[in-house]
Each structure stands twice: as C-alpha cells, then as structure tokens.
Amino acid sequence: MQTPSPPGTHDQQASRTRNLRWRGVLRRHLTALLFLAPALILYVTFVAYPLVGSIGLSFTSWDGVNPVREWVGLQNYTRALSADDIMQQALLHNLIWIVLETIIPLSIGLLLASVLWDGARGRTAFRTVFFMPYVLATVIIAIIFGLIYNPLYGALNQFLRAVGLDMLAQGWLGQPNTALLSLIMVAAWAGYGFNMTILLAGLQNVDMDLFDAAKIDGANAWQRFIYVTIPQLSHVITLLVSLSLIGGFKVFDLVYVMTAGGPGYHTEVVATYIFKQSFQQNFVGYGTALSIVLTVIILIVSVLFIRLRERGGET
C-alpha cells in the first residue's frame, strides 16, 4: 500500500492492513481445509491408514484371530523372495501373462486402428463392437469363457468337432499345458478393442505434414507406417505397455473365476496366491508381506514408466 496518508495515522493503518492480510490468509486456509476435508478423511481412513497397517502386518506372523501379533522381522520377506516355490511360480505366470497380454492386443489393436484410420465405412460401429468387452465386468467375461472352454458342451470344442478337428478338442482349462494360455487368450480378447481405441485416438494426432513429406520422398505405405506413424505413436504405445504391465501384475478376477489358480498351481498368479494365503488359509502376516512385494513391483514399474514418459516428452 503506497497511498499517501497523514503522518499520525500511518502506523495504525499499516497494522490494520497487516491484520486484514492475516485474516485473509487464515480464511483462505480454512476454506481450503473445508473443501479438502471430505476427500482427505475418506482417503486417509480407507487408503493411507490401511497401507501403513499392511506394512506393519507384513512383519508379523498374525493369523487373523490371535490377539497378539507376533513380530517376526523380515522372515516373511525372505521366505517370499527365496523360499516359496509357489510364489516364484506365480510370479513367472504373471510375467508370461504380461508379455503375451501386451503383445497380442497391441498388435491386433495396431492393425485394426491403422485400417480404420485409413478410412473405412462403419468406423463408429466397428469401434463400438471392438471396445465392448472393456465395458463389461471381467467376472461376466470369465463366466462366459468358462462355458466356451467347457470340454463337453463348450463352443470351442463343439466348433472343433463340427469342422472335423476332433483331435484338437480338449479340456482347455483342466490341463497344465493349456490352462494359462487359455486364460491369457481371454484377456487378450477383452483387451484389443481398448488398445485399438487408444491407438486410433493417437493416430488422430499424427502430423500429416510429415506423412506427406515422406510420401513425396517416395516412401511406400509400409515405410511410412514404420518410420513416420509408429514413432509418433510411441507415447501412446508406452502408455498401453505400462497399463498392461501394471494390469498384468494385478490380474485376479479372470483367474479366480475361471480356474482359481488350478489345475494344481498351473495358473496361480500373485494376486490369487495372496488371496488364498490371507483369506482362505489365514496366514495374514505372510499374505500381507506378499501384497507388499506386489505393491513394490508395481511402484517400480510405474516410476520407470513416468521416467520414460518424461524423457519422451523432452525429445
């Protein structure tokens, strides 16, 4: 405040403006607090607090009942990371899942997106159809495909028998060598429409000048696709890969409903194993440690992705 004032009242006025400013600051903070309160209360109570609880529980051998939660230090973690064969197997299944569930829907999605982008009638209708599985609950998809894979009356075997390929008809979900792959195919089926839609959205932003320049330079359609389109889609592809990575580590619904990890442990994934350990066998402490391991893996993947994305943004 630089307004000239009578000498005597100068101090008074300065203190009044200071006072007013402080009241304004206080008011602003109170308003912010009121606006934030509902979100903050729910988030702290049902996310942050249990997260701290998880970390605490993971150092105990609690069974969910005993009033005493016995501290066992790092024992759960050393067991999970070095001595638990089923956990290793489950992690391997997650990795297989991730690799296939990234490659298959991404390639199909890219193929369909580029065809639709190239110009085709009924584009909206096709997009609507391809995207549909993404809107439905995974549980429902799992139940439908459980019926499709049924050895006797399932559509798959019925179809194979109808076209004379009887020898290929088999118990898809009941055999160790086909069960995991059969599950992954369902995930890929449900995912390619989503991949296609995101890629198609990315293609809308492709710089057409570059595309035309390449055309003038004599690049054919395939070359333009590889050298002009794909590099400009790298952002979107990184996003899809990272979503599959994170989703692939978290996968639960599909496996739980279709095979519950069986036969044996041939389709066990980390999330179903955590569920069994902590809620069916009541090894709550150990199950929690496993869930922290899973969380750390997902955190690492997410941070790597964010780094990659930032670097991509600079260049």
Partner: peptide, 26 residues
C-alpha cells in the same frame, strides 16, 4: 494455501497403490 503441493502428491500417490496393498488390514 500452505502445503498445497505436498497434499496433491499425497493424493496422487494413491493412483499407483493397488487394492491388494490395503485389502487385508482394511
């Protein structure tokens, strides 16, 4: 307000926390 950025990152961190990380104590 004071702590605005810290609070934002506190909320944002929740995006990468999977449900599995909290489901047992919850």
């Amino acid at each position: 307000f004071l702590g605005r950025n810290i609070l934002f990152y506190f909320f944002l961190a929740g995006i990468i926390i999977p449900f599995q990380a909290i489901m047992i104590p919850l």
